[in-house]
Amino acid sequence: MWKWLHPYAKPERAYQLCVTLQPYFLWPGILCLVAGSIWGLAFAPQDYQQGDSFRIIYIHVPSAILSMSTYVAMAVAALVGTVWQWRTAFMAMIAMAPIGAVVTFIALFTGAAWGKPMWGTWWVWDARLTSELILLFLYLGVIALYGAFEDKQQAGKAAGVMALVGVVNVPIIHYSVEWWNTLHQGATISKFDKPSIAPEMLWPLLIALVGLALFIAAVTVMRMKNEIIRREYHRPWVKDLAARALGGDHAV
């Protein structure tokens, strides 16, 4: 069933795939992000309770959701690399880590900026923000561990182990932090519960979500190309590529 994936175990094929996919991820992604943001900022109705501050949702929710999905995707790549010994899988894993960390940071920052008008304080140890913070540490751990090894084959395997240990932990962390939070902060009830969201508010949210997902895929593909070049530096196909890029200065 997965036979069609097999050619991509070779870095050269994977590189070609990345080059092909990049424009299909990047431009629709940017378009959807811009469209969703403008719709959310200017055209979606105000929230009756929170006024215009609630427009932050159009970045906060997509980034929070995608920060977790990217981690899971990273862990899947780690699993493929560990079980089937594919170098390209580890390259994909480490390509996803930085953009995942940036998106997690965005979720945290926008969460804090939203928290100030909502709860009156920039930071609050609410279950979601706390879990996001721990997720950021998980990302940074994978990145740091990969960077600590000279031999990148080793680095990929080591970082892969931690990504997998982390992914097992993500549900445990979520459950425990949520439970911890209800214990200690019974008085604070989140105003943004899950009301039935009006369609005028839902559409920009979905578009922003799709846009950010495509954008993350685009950056992953770009960084994967870089990692492949770094690791395959001495191969003839990389040398050809570098020589050809001399002609035009557009990104190949």
Binding site: D52, S53, S63, V102, P117, A218, V219
Partner: peptide, 26 residues
């Protein structure tokens, strides 16, 4: 932004900067 200008524009601004930075760096 109905008085919430600082929070909304700070959020969108920092997010935009972060995403642009990551793409340019790559």
């Amino acid at each position: 932004m109905g008085g919430y200008a600082l929070y909304v524009w700070l959020s969108f601004g920092v997010s935009l900067l972060a995403l642009v930075w990551v793409v340019l760096d790559s």
